[in-house]
């Protein structure tokens, strides 16, 4: 399913989107299917499935640990696409990975593999618009959305450029820093939501872990929230993982509906 279509459906129901990140292969390739299913049962609208890279500079300790477990468990790009193909989801699926894995596979092959396995969007946290021209063209040709990030430090000129290029949704980085669960909502988040003026849906990530935070962010004008570390923490604990993933998804989903 295309991302735009999902946001349209949600808008018609007056709901915000819950986008859930977990890392493929954390802690085993088989576990991923079970966990994705649990998240979908909990009401997640879009799945962002990490393809683990050895040097994840934009990630904090929680997701770094998840990535390490996935690599130790044998996850590779080849296995990733096989796993994704077997998921048969009825909601959009996005790959989040670092640029070297895309570069090494070959931009064209990577994007074609995405399209063929049912992936509708790509997020690359270490690829700013300055370097993304080639990938953007290939994505457009293959009807895969290249999702751009904007941050509190993004200047107005850069913002205009990014909003003009961005597809699927715009990923608003809620705070200066790396990924990791927090309990508050940074004041910079509300300001950023106001600064991003676009018809493309806006989803806020980095530091969101509760239904309350999610509700505040939707209330401030976002169309969705992205939650990663809170889910990865559950996977890391190894305790009742599917049940707790589903319960947390349900709690946060309640937050994004309650406006």
């Amino acid at each position: 399913m295309r991302i735009a279509e999902k946001f349209k459906q949600l808008k018609a129901k007056n709901e915000g989107a819950l986008i859930a990140y977990i890392c493929a292969g954390d802690p085993t390739p088989e576990g991923t299917k079970e966990y994705v299913t649990a998240l979908v049962r909990g009401g997640v609208d879009i799945i962002e499935l990490g393809l683990p890279f050895s040097d994840p500079v934009a990630d904090g300790p929680t997701i770094q640990a998840g990535i390490q477990r996935a690599l130790d468990g044998g996850m590779t790009p080849d296995l990733y696409f096989r796993t994704v193909s077997s998921l048969k989801l009825h909601i959009p699926l996005i790959v989040m990975t670092y640029y070297n894995l895309i570069f090494k596979r070959g931009l064209e092959k990577f994007v074609k593999d995405c399209a063929a396995s049912g992936i509708s969007g790509i997020i690359v946290p270490d690829l700013p618009p300055e370097e993304s021209g080639d990938l953007l063209q290939i994505c457009r040709k293959n009807e895969v959305d290249l999702i751009y990030l904007v941050a509190p430090t993004t200047t107005e000129t850069r913002m205009e450029h990014i909003l003009a290029e961005g597809a699927g949704f715009i990923y608003l980085v809620a705070r200066l820093g790396v990924t990791g669960a927090r309990s508050d909502v940074a004041t910079s988040t509300g300001e950023l939501i106001k600064r991003v003026k676009t018809a493309t849906p806006k989803a806020v990530g980095f530091g969101i872990s509760t239904g309350d935070q999610a509700a505040q962010i939707i209330h401030a004008g976002a169309d969705g929230v992205i939650v990663g570390s809170a889910f990865v923490n559950i996977i890391g604990s190894g305790q009742d993982v599917p049940e707790r993933l589903e319960a947390l998804a349900r709690e946060i989903k309640k937050g994004v509906i309650s406006n």
């Binding site: 500079v57 934009a58 640029y99 946290p125 270490d126 690829l127 700013p128 300055e130 370097e131 751009y148 990030l149 904007v150 941050a151 509190p152 430090t153 993004t154 200047t155 850069r158 990014i162 980085v173 200066l176």
Partner: peptide, 21 residues
């Protein structure tokens, strides 16, 4: 763009947060 590279090498492959810096 040219000034950031040596032939095809170099560039600025960093998170958006750092680009303004």
């Amino acid at each position: 763009l040219t000034s950031t590279k040596f032939g095809k090498y170099g560039g600025q492959y960093v998170p958006e947060i750092l680009m303004p810096a």
